[in-house]
Design a protein around this nucleic acid. Structure first.
Length: 273
DNA sequence: AACTAACTCAACCGCCATTTA
DNA sequence: GTAAATGGCGGTTGAGTTAGT
């Protein structure tokens, strides 16, 4: 420790910055054919003008076939929050509990959404938190209100290896006590277990947007003292949306190979329909 | 329509841990 | 046992995008 070391590679003549489709294709096809082996040696073997580290990162964070893209589900967010509470910024360990998610992605979600949300939790009541999380671009909102009420997971469990996997769905009855609880429970109404259906990221994004919009509208209507029936109406609409068989069919139809989708749609953004 | 601020996320950097010679 | 090589991790940055004025 503390000893001097050479840089990971000679950076002269190496490309930096965003990866081009051709580079992705080279890297991807090389690793599929040969495996990555020695990362440092890989770029020259694969014909890439990139640092080995850069290749590794690109593969792990983007090209790996089992990568899951799209917004984080409510259960994923809760998992992150709870694991972070237990082990701190151990992103790779947290990522190991979330198949298909990368440490980098989790770190980004934490820094952009979850950290702020928890900060608000500390200073505000649940109502304010609902506003924040509903305006977030992240898919579902989690909250101390809902998670503490519905989770049996110990927050301070020091032994992560023994931690139970979190349920992808949680049953929340419609008889919520407050509008806040109702708003927080909305995402659960939609929780299609990811073990049951494989949703395309773009579909997930659309659904989460609908959910966010509706829960936010329901919240606003209550905050503004609009028709008392609004909440139940919104609740019914939400329920219908979440349980409609036609929606499920649409989602099932969206089971598309993410790798092939990726190579069909450059630049590196989630594919669009 | 133009400008600015805020946000997102892919990628880089540097350090630490582990493996190898 | 030691030093070098390599892999992996977490923090940070900055370009691109979106939202607000």
């Amino acid at each position: 420790m503390g000893r001097q070391r050479a840089p990971c590679c000679d950076k002269t003549g190496l490309r930096k910055g965003p990866w081009s489709p051709a580079e992705d294709q080279k890297l991807s096809s090389y690793i599929r054919a040969e495996g990555h082996g020695n990362w440092r040696a890989l770029p020259s073997k694969a014909g890439l003008l990139r640092c080995g580290k850069s290749c590794r990162l690109r593969w792990i964070n983007y090209l790996r076939p089992d990568i899951k893209r799209g917004n984080f589900s409510r259960s994923e967010e809760e998992t992150i929050i709870k694991l972070h509470e237990s082990i701190g910024n151990k992103w790779s360990k947290i990522a190991s509990q979330l198949p298909g998610r990368t440490d980098n992605e989790i770190k980004n979600v934490w820094n952009t959404h979850l950290k702020k949300r928890l900060a608000l939790r500390g200073s505000n009541a649940c109502g304010d938190e609902a506003k924040e999380s509903s305006s977030s671009s992240s898919s579902f909102s989690s909250s101390s209100c809902s998670s503490s009420a519905n989770s049996s997971i110990s927050y301070s469990n020091p032994n992560i290896a023994e931690m139970e996997p979190f349920k992808g769905t949680s049953e929340i009855p419609y008889e919520q006590k407050t509008e806040d609880e109702f708003c927080f429970s909305l995402p659960s109404v939609f929780s299609f277990s990811e073990n049951e259906v494989h949703l395309h990221p773009t579909v997930l994004e659309k659904i989460s947007k609908i959910k966010d919009d509706r829960s936010w509208m329901a919240y606003l209507e209550n905050e503004l003292g609009l028709d008392d029936n609004q909440e139940s109406v919104a609740r019914d609409e939400v329920h219908q949306l979440g349980t409609s068989s036609s929606n499920n069919e649409i989602l099932l139809e969206a089971n598309i190979d993410p790798v092939s989708m990726y190579f069909q749609t450059w630049p590196s953004s989630p594919p669009t329909f």
